[in-house]
Simulated scan of single mutants.
Amino acid sequence: MDINIPEVVAEMTEAFMRYEKALTTNDVAVLDELFHNSPLTLRYGVTENLHSYDEIRAFRAGRPSVGLEREIYNTRITTYGRDFATANTEFKRKNSTKTGRQSQTWIRTADGWRVVSAHVSLLEA
């Protein structure tokens, strides 16, 4: 298996940065698009455990739309072949003493790269 094929890493990085922009601007339509529409898709957040695309979509619809700006760092995109990837990053929100971690598993579908599993956690500063 080829790991980190340059053109696949570039595609995946573009998808990840599209997700990041949608997250910080509360572009719910893009966020919904980038999660794989499946009952098997999951997202574990800081305060919630979401066990399907429908639960994730419902969470996004009620999510606050202010204070979403953040700085990301130590981002690692790793591809395994042409159709499977992981994206991990650390982040810090403005005016917060906490840092966060975000992990995502992505697959390539007929519609493009989609998140199938995600996890977000916070650490005390």
Rank of each mutant, 00 (worst) to 15 (best):
E71Q: 09
R114K: 15
R60D: 04
E14M: 12
N74M: 12
K92T: 14
E7P: 09
P39E: 12
A29M: 06
A58P: 01
D54M: 07
W106M: 02
F84S: 05
L42V: 08
E11F: 05
T75D: 05
W113S: 03
R76V: 15
S65Q: 10
F59E: 02
A110K: 14
S52M: 03
G67D: 08
F16E: 01
M17W: 04
R76A: 15
E7R: 11
I107L: 11
R57E: 04
R76K: 15
L122C: 02
T41C: 11
N74Q: 15
F59A: 12
K98H: 09
D83S: 14
H36K: 09
Y53W: 15
D27K: 06
V115E: 00
E33M: 11
R18E: 08
R108H: 10
G81V: 12
R60C: 04
I56A: 00
R57Y: 07
V46R: 10
T25I: 08
T89V: 13
Y53G: 06
P39F: 07
V115W: 00
S103Y: 04
E7A: 13
M12F: 06
T109Q: 10
N74A: 15
T24R: 14
D83G: 11
E7G: 05
H51N: 14
W113G: 01
N4H: 08
T25Q: 04
E33Q: 15
T99A: 13
R108D: 02
I107P: 04
K98Q: 13
R43L: 02
L122E: 09
S96Q: 08
L40W: 06
